[in-house]
C-alpha cells in the first residue's frame, strides 16, 4: 500500500541518456591541481620565507575575489565553486619572486581573471593561459619581476626594502646560462631547489612529484610534459653552448620555469590541444620556442612566451590532428 502510494505520487524525470555520470567534475580536477602544487609551494616558503606564502595567498585571494565580483557585475551565476580561479591565482603566485611588492599579485590577478578570462567568456573560453598572460603583463614592471632572492635567506612578512636588497641574488641560474656560463651551483642543487628563482619553480623534484600525482589521477596525460621537456633537452644537447653537454642539458632543463611550465601551465586544458597527437606537437614546439628565446632572445627565460605563443595555435593543432573517425576509410568506400 505504502509502495503503491509512492509510485503513483512520484513525478518522474524524463531526460535523455546517459543517466549516470563519472564522479570527476571541474571542481575535483582543480582540487587535484591545487594538491599537486602544494609541495612546491611549501618548498618555496621554506626557501624564501613567509613573504612567499603571503604573495601566493594574495594572488589566490584576489583572483577568487575578482572572479566573484566580475560575475556578480555581469549577473552571471557565481562560478568560484569550480576552484578554477583559485588555481589561476595559485599558478600566478608561484610564478612571482618572493620579494616582489604586494600589489603585484593583485594587479596580476585582475589582468588574469578579468581581462584574459572574464572578457573572453569565462571558464573554457579564454584563448591564453590567464596566469601566464598576467605574468607577462607584469613584466611592465621588470624590476618587480626579477627581484630574486638567495635561497634560505628568508624574508619575513614585513621585510623592508633594505632587508630585501641585502638578500637579492647575484644571478639566477638561467641568467648565468644566458651569459654563456654554467650556473655556479650544481644541477643536483637545481633539482632539489637550492637556487634563486620564482616561488614555485625552484624545486624540480617536488614539481615532478606533483606531475606524477596528476598523471596517476588522470588529470593530465604524459604527452605535453614529455614532449615539451624532451624537446628542450634534445635541442640543447644538439646545440650545446658549453663544453660539458650533460651539465649544460641538465641546467637547461632544471633551471628556471621549465618544469612548472611544462607540467602545470602548458597542460592547462583550455589552452592546449584535445588530441594526443596535437599535444605532442604542441609540447615539442613549446620546447623549441623556449630554446630559441633562451639562445637568441632578450630575456633569459622563454617558457611563458613559448606557451602563450603556442596557446594561439591550439585550435589549428586540434584541426590538423583530428582523428580519423571509426569507419571512415580512405579511398572511397565510405558514405554509402
Amino acid at each position: 500500500m505504502n509502495n503503491e502510494a509512492k509510485q503513483t505520487a512520484a513525478l518522474l524525470t524524463v531526460s535523455p541518456s546517459p543517466h549516470i555520470k563519472h564522479n570527476d567534475t571541474t571542481r575535483t580536477i582543480m582540487v587535484d591541481v591545487i594538491i599537486a602544487l602544494i609541495p612546491a609551494l611549501i618548498w618555496g616558503v621554506i626557501c624564501f620565507g613567509l613573504r612567499a606564502l603571503a604573495i601566493v595567498l594574495l594572488a589566490v585571494g584576489s583572483s577568487v575575489l575578482f572572479e566573484f565580483a566580475f560575475n556578480k557585475l555581469l549577473k552571471k551565476p557565481n562560478p568560484i565553486g569550480d576552484f578554477s580561479a583559485a588555481v589561476t591565482g595559485l599558478l600566478l603566485g608561484l610564478n612571482l619572486p618572493a620579494a616582489t611588492s604586494y600589489w603585484i599579485p593583485v594587479i596580476g590577478s585582475f589582468f588574469a581573471i578579468v581581462v584574459v578570462k572574464g572578457l573572453f567568456g569565462g571558464i573554457g573560453k579564454n584563448f591564453m593561459n590567464p596566469a601566464l598572460a598576467a605574468r607577462v603583463f607584469l613584466f611592465a614592471w621588470p624590476e618587480e619581476m626579477t627581484m630574486f632572492t638567495e635561497p634560505f635567506k628568508r624574508l619575513g612578512l614585513f621585510a623592508s626594502s633594505e632587508n630585501i636588497s641585502d638578500v637579492i641574488a647575484s644571478a639566477t641560474p638561467l641568467a648565468s646560462l644566458k651569459s654563456g656560463n654554467l650556473p655556479d651551483i650544481s644541477w643536483v642543487d637545481l633539482i632539489t631547489g637550492k637556487c634563486a628563482g620564482c616561488i614555485g619553480e625552484v624545486s624540480s623534484a617536488l614539481l615532478i612529484v606533483g606531475g606524477i600525482y596528476l598523471l596517476v589521477r588522470k588529470v593530465i596525460t604524459w604527452h605535453i610534459p614529455v614532449s615539451f621537456i624532451g624537446s628542450v633537452a634534445i635541442l640543447s644537447a644538439i646545440f650545446p653552448q658549453n663544453g660539458d653537454i650533460l651539465s649544460f642539458v641538465m641546467s637547461e632543463v632544471f633551471a628556471g620555469g621549465l618544469l612548472l611550465g611544462a607540467i602545470f601551465m602548458a597542460t592547462d586544458y583550455v589552452t592546449s590541444p584535445v588530441t594526443a597527437k596535437g599535444r605532442l606537437i604542441y609540447g615539442a614546439l613549446c620546447g623549441a620556442i623556449v630554446v630559441f628565446i633562451r639562445y637568441f632572445g632578450g630575456y633569459p627565460e622563454g617558457v611563458s612566451f613559448a606557451i602563450l605563443i603556442m596557446n594561439t595555435l591550439v585550435y589549428y593543432l586540434d584541426k590538423f590532428t583530428k582523428p580519423r573517425p571509426f569507419g571512415k576509410i580512405k579511398g572511397g568506400a565510405s558514405h554509402g
Binding site: 571541474t26 551565476p77 586544458y269 592546449s272 590541444p273 582523428p323 573517425p325
Partner: peptide, 19 residues
Amino acid sequence: DYACIRCGRCVKNCPMHLM
C-alpha cells in the same frame, strides 16, 4: 551552468574516434 573546459576526455574515450 555547464562549461566545457577542453579536458579532452571525450576525444580520448570516443569509441568512434570523433571530437
